[in-house]
Nucleic acid binder design. Structure first.
Length: 493
RNA sequence: GGCGUCUUGGCCGAGUGGCUAGGCAGAGGUCUGCAAAACCUUUUACAGCGGUUCGAAUCCGCUAGACGCCUCCA
């Protein structure tokens, strides 16, 4: 069996801008942290794409035999709508609008989040910690940062001193920004601020009297700043230094930059070896935004109930569609793209389902182990799922050629083919075999199979008027008959 | 305005300094009573202009355009 000692993975590290050979801190173990959602509304499809990318990373690392601790947080604490000391806590705002408790908002959308991810066949992370469950840890980090001289308190709030930090270390290494540029380009905001400088960010905010989500601290009754939870939880569960930190491209600045600063200010060194950023999902060439109507909820893909798509799509089809693009590329979500993927997906599944019927030959016309390694090579090269899928279609071609008798594999090689297709389709890409779900024995199948029999009899009698009538009327009812070598099967839409 | 990413054939979408990505669509074929499906084969490419090089779609520069971040956002 393949394992991490046989395969060498290269990861594109956002910190260095290069692909680097992946070497975990502790051999055989991987610590991975991915910034999770803020649960104040239905999970964004782009968010799903990001998590899907890391779901595949998680699956692949596990497949290689690494012991992976995958931490993905749930942000359920109040974050302000912006970083300028003003705006409303998004969860509190939603709670006010719907006249429910903030924690009801959190609960509702956490459940929604999990439901959607389950539909897409995500593996649950090893730990899914919540921000509100780690207030104490966050306060401890603030204390340490203050002690180290990189934070200051004003009116019960605590701010990170970016300028001071930049004197000793480098702020902006991840997003390749210079503090001077930031200073020149920071918009002058009107609201009066307690910050020394606009680039500073909150570690702790004093709560206004009407603010419901609040916790006691040495500085005030308040709530933690919006970058701190990730530092607290990643440190707690993965240590001061861990292997992989992931998230959406848009979190690079300021969120991840602030995480690096916080961790360095607290622990004296940078926290992460490999930073990975998943690119954006757009729809019909434009940014997805509720305000412009260029928007779709994950659920609406499954139901087809959205003006931007022509029909409902199986979650595995949507998953397959997303994985046909590399995680570092912008992906355009379109109905035409989904339809193309749908056909390809079912062709792939068809081939996988027919594996069990293949007959072994006395020799092999293809070096199966070479092909198998190409699948690994694709994943080893910065988790290149599109290349992997291209290789899987080479496998499809081979399956069909064996069926046609134009290629053959020995019994052992056939097992390698079957095993490899199963591993990469299901274990690593996380697809589910929707095609094999059609059960026999239910009432619809019984009825349609009877009609297929009758049609077959009509054809034998050359009564094509009747046989075509059966076929056409069934088609009108949404049931397609497909004549094959081994008889007729049907599909429904 | 600043910073960054990107621009591939009808569509989607990989990739590399010289050697077929792949999917969908199109074309041809096999199969079939016919059709569909399925399978096999297959055409069209690297935004524009310069430069480096024996050779560039791949490296560099400029131009145009797109997208993202800079402000909650994945």
């Amino acid at each position: 069996m393949a394992n991490y000692q046989e395969q060498s993975i290269k990861i594109y590290n956002s910190l260095t801008g290069q692909k680097e050979t992946f070497k975990p801190l502790n051999e055989g173990h991987v610590g991975m942290y991915v910034c999770g959602p803020t649960v104040y509304s239905n999970v964004h499809l782009g968010n799903v794409r990001t998590f899907m990318s890391f779901d595949v990373v998680f699956r692949y690392l596990k497949h290689l035999g690494f012991k992976v601790r995958y931490v993905r947080n749930i942000t359920d604490a109040g974050h302000l709508e912006n970083d300028a000391d003003e705006g409303e806590d998004r969860i509190a705002k939603k709670a006010r609008l719907e006249s429910i408790e903030p924690m009801e908002v959190v609960q509702r959308y956490t459940v929604d989040f999990h439901n959607i991810l389950n539909s897409f066949n995500f593996l649950p992370p090893s730990i899914e910690p919540t921000a509100t469950g780690h207030i104490i840890e966050q306060i401890e980090i603030i204390k340490a940062i203050i002690d180290n001289g990189y934070a200051y308190e004003v009116n019960g709030s605590v701010y990170f001193d970016v300028h001071k930090f930049n004197e000793d270390k480098a702020y902006g290494v991840l997003s390749k920004r210079k503090l001077e540029d930031l200073i020149h380009n920071t918009r002058q905001l009107d609201g009066q601020s307690d910050k020394k400088n606009p680039q500073d960010f909150a570690l702790w905010k004093r709560a206004e009297p009407q603010h419901i989500m609040r916790w006691p601290s040495p500085w005030s009754d308040g709530f933690p700043g919006w970058h701190l939870e990730c530092t607290a939880m990643s440190t707690k569960y993965l240590g001061e230094k861990f292997d992989i930190h992931g998230g959406g491209m848009d979190l690079k600045f300021p969120h991840h930059e602030c995480e690096i600063a916080q961790a360095e200010a607290c622990n004296g060194h940078d926290p992460v070896n490999y930073w990975m950023h998943a690119n954006m999902l757009i729809m019909n060439g434009k940014k997805m935004a509720k305000s412009t109507g260029n928007f779709i909820l994950p659920n609406e893909i499954f139901s087809g109930d959205n003006p931007h798509i022509s029909k409902a799509y199986n979650p595995s089809v949507a998953r397959f569609f997303m994985l046909q693009a590399h995680y570092r590329s912008i992906l355009d979500f379109t109905d035409a793209g989904l339809q193309a993927s749908e056909k390809g997906f079912y062709r792939l599944m068809e081939a996988v389902n027919s594996l069990k019927d293949l007959k072994a030959g006395s020799s092999s016309t293809l070096n199966i182990n070479e092909w198998r390694q190409k699948c690994y090579d694709a994943m080893n090269d910065d988790f290149n799922t599109p290349i992997l899928i291209a290789q899987l279609f080479e496998g499809v071609k081979l399956v069909n050629q064996i069926k046609d008798g134009t290629a053959s594999l020995t019994s052992n090689d056939l097992k390698v083919l079957e095993n490899t297709l199963h591993i990469f389709c299901f274990d690593i890409l996380g697809l589910t075999n929707a095609a094999s779900a059609e059960g026999s024995g239910d009432k619809l199948s019984e009825a349609v199979n009877l009609l297929i029999e009758l049609r077959q009899e009509a054809r034998m009698n050359k009564d094509f008027g009747l046989s075509d009538k059966i076929r056409d009327r069934l088609a009108e009812a949404g049931i397609q008959l497909q004549d094959g070598k081994d008889g007729t099967v049907f599909t429904t839409n």
